[in-house]
């Protein structure tokens, strides 16, 4: 499949399935503070990863096709039509039949998820890069060094 930066990497059908896969890799948190990876729009991050590493694409596409087949077996139109329990079961099934599918997706989704501003906020951080604001650390407790100051010289004289 040829791509330009503006061309989508995945078909609409594959992109819908991928969004559902990502929501199972990193589901929404139970307390609602953190969204699922698919809901966060990380299909775009996977596309970016594939553009950088084209070798990823066949494994992802084959895995999505395998999930579509499992969905058809279950009488569903597509993977994203399955209920949650069925989707998780399907993913576990292809962990062995399509061993190249999940590891790459997990790596790239973890990377993209945990640099996203909404997730940083959910973790209690500010949704920004470290620079230029940095972080403030409180001054250190000088009395912590008292036991060390009381020790004799540690180095060998020569």
């Amino acid at each position: 499949m040829s791509t330009t930066p503006q061309d989508p990497v995945f078909s609409a059908h594959h992109a819908r399935a991928l969004e559902s896969v990502l929501d199972e890799i990193i589901p929404p948190s139970e307390d609602g503070r953190l969204p699922g990876a698919g809901e966060l729009g990380l299909v775009a991050a996977i596309e970016a990863a594939v553009r950088k590493t084209p070798d990823l694409e066949p494994a992802v596409v084959q895995g999505l096709d395998a999930l579509a087949e499992i969905a058809r077996e279950a009488g569903a139109a597509e993977f994203s039509s399955l209920d949650r329990e069925q989707r998780v079961a399907a993913l576990h099934r292809i962990e062995t039949s399509q061993p190249a599918f999940l590891p790459g997706l997990i790596f790239h989704s973890y990377c993209a998820y945990y640099q996203h501003g909404r997730v940083l906020e959910g973790l209690g951080m500010e949704p920004r890069p470290p620079y230029p604001l940095g972080y403030a650390l409180a001054p250190s407790d000088p009395t912590l060094l008292d036991p060390v100051r009381a020790r004799p010289k540690l180095y060998r004289e020569v």
């Binding site: 199972e24 999940l102 997990i106 973890y110 990377c111 945990y114």
Partner: peptide
């Protein structure tokens, strides 16, 4: 956060 997640992924401590 990313490094933490990857540590968890690599060590099996943070499952999908």
């Amino acid at each position: 956060p990313v490094s933490t997640a990857l540590l968890g992924m690599g060590s099996g401590r943070v499952p999908w």
